[in-house]
Simulated scan of single mutants.
Amino acid sequence: MNAQKLLSIFIIFAVLTCTLIAVGCTETDNKNDIVETEQDEENIVSLDEIIDIEWQWSGLIETLPASQSVVPDPENYTLVLKSDGTYSIKADCNLGTGGYTLEGNDLTLAPGPITLAYCGPDSLDNQYLSLLSNVTTVSMENDQLVLGVGENGDRMLFVKGEVVEQ
């Protein structure tokens, strides 16, 4: 009977130890989550930083395959986010508008009406429009607007143009 009592106490002790270890691991994970959340909140782009500015597409950083390209005429590829939740774009010889949603640093550009003129063989209008339709995030780096595209980590870089009057 003593052996049975001793075995029961050992089992209870083992279960209690495993439970405390599991709780300890969970608390550590939660603390890391809190730190990550605080860091994410610090990096959230303020709408005031990005609206009513003509952003000019200046470059593209692609991850697969790794490459970086410069847009030859940034003033021909613009994006203006407006305070009413709409945007306007210039894609070389084409103009368009649409709506956007910004939640934290998640940005979605909903397509709207756009002209469909042929801008010539050297135009980047189709690439620009395709990239904009896959935008997922927004951030600011060194006074540049950075739009994350797709799931590969590709990034569109924009420089400030003119402030746009409402």
Rank of each mutant, 00 (worst) to 15 (best):
residue 4 Q to M: 06
residue 4 Q to N: 12
residue 5 K to P: 08
residue 6 L to A: 11
residue 10 F to C: 13
residue 12 I to M: 10
residue 14 A to D: 14
residue 15 V to N: 07
residue 16 L to D: 10
residue 16 L to N: 10
residue 21 I to S: 09
residue 24 G to R: 10
residue 26 T to A: 11
residue 26 T to K: 11
residue 27 E to V: 14
residue 28 T to G: 09
residue 31 K to C: 02
residue 32 N to L: 13
residue 33 D to S: 15
residue 38 E to G: 06
residue 39 Q to C: 07
residue 39 Q to L: 11
residue 40 D to G: 01
residue 42 E to M: 14
residue 43 N to I: 04
residue 43 N to F: 09
residue 44 I to R: 09
residue 45 V to Y: 00
residue 45 V to E: 02
residue 45 V to G: 04
residue 48 D to F: 09
residue 49 E to C: 08
residue 50 I to V: 05
residue 54 E to H: 03
residue 55 W to R: 01
residue 57 W to M: 10
residue 59 G to R: 07
residue 61 I to V: 15
residue 61 I to L: 15
residue 62 E to Y: 08
residue 64 L to P: 00
residue 65 P to C: 05
residue 66 A to P: 12
residue 66 A to L: 15
residue 69 S to I: 14
residue 70 V to E: 13
residue 71 V to A: 05
residue 71 V to D: 07
residue 71 V to M: 07
residue 71 V to W: 03
residue 72 P to F: 08
residue 73 D to R: 04
residue 73 D to V: 09
residue 73 D to E: 14
residue 73 D to A: 09
residue 76 N to L: 09
residue 77 Y to R: 10
residue 81 L to D: 08
residue 81 L to W: 01
residue 81 L to I: 01
residue 82 K to W: 01
residue 82 K to R: 15
residue 83 S to Q: 14
residue 85 G to F: 00
residue 86 T to Q: 06
residue 86 T to F: 00
residue 88 S to K: 08
residue 91 A to D: 04
residue 92 D to P: 03
residue 92 D to M: 01
residue 94 N to D: 15
residue 94 N to S: 13
residue 95 L to R: 12
residue 96 G to Q: 06
residue 99 G to A: 11
residue 99 G to K: 11
residue 99 G to S: 14
residue 100 Y to P: 01
residue 103 E to F: 04
residue 104 G to N: 03
residue 108 T to F: 05
residue 109 L to R: 03
residue 109 L to G: 02
residue 110 A to T: 10
residue 110 A to S: 07
residue 111 P to Q: 08
residue 114 I to G: 06
residue 118 Y to C: 06
residue 118 Y to M: 06
residue 120 G to S: 02
residue 121 P to C: 05
residue 125 D to Y: 06
residue 125 D to I: 01
residue 128 Y to F: 15
residue 130 S to L: 12
residue 133 S to Q: 09
residue 133 S to R: 03
residue 136 T to R: 01
residue 137 T to V: 01
residue 139 S to G: 07
residue 140 M to D: 06
residue 141 E to A: 14
residue 142 N to K: 15
residue 143 D to G: 10
residue 146 V to G: 02
residue 148 G to Q: 07
residue 148 G to D: 05
residue 149 V to I: 13
residue 149 V to R: 01
residue 151 E to T: 09
residue 152 N to L: 13
residue 152 N to M: 11
residue 153 G to D: 11
residue 156 M to F: 07
residue 157 L to E: 05
residue 158 F to G: 01
residue 159 V to P: 02
residue 161 G to D: 00
residue 161 G to M: 05
residue 161 G to N: 04
residue 162 E to T: 04
residue 162 E to A: 11
residue 163 V to I: 10
residue 163 V to G: 02
residue 163 V to N: 10
residue 164 V to R: 05
residue 164 V to L: 05
residue 165 E to P: 07
residue 166 Q to P: 05
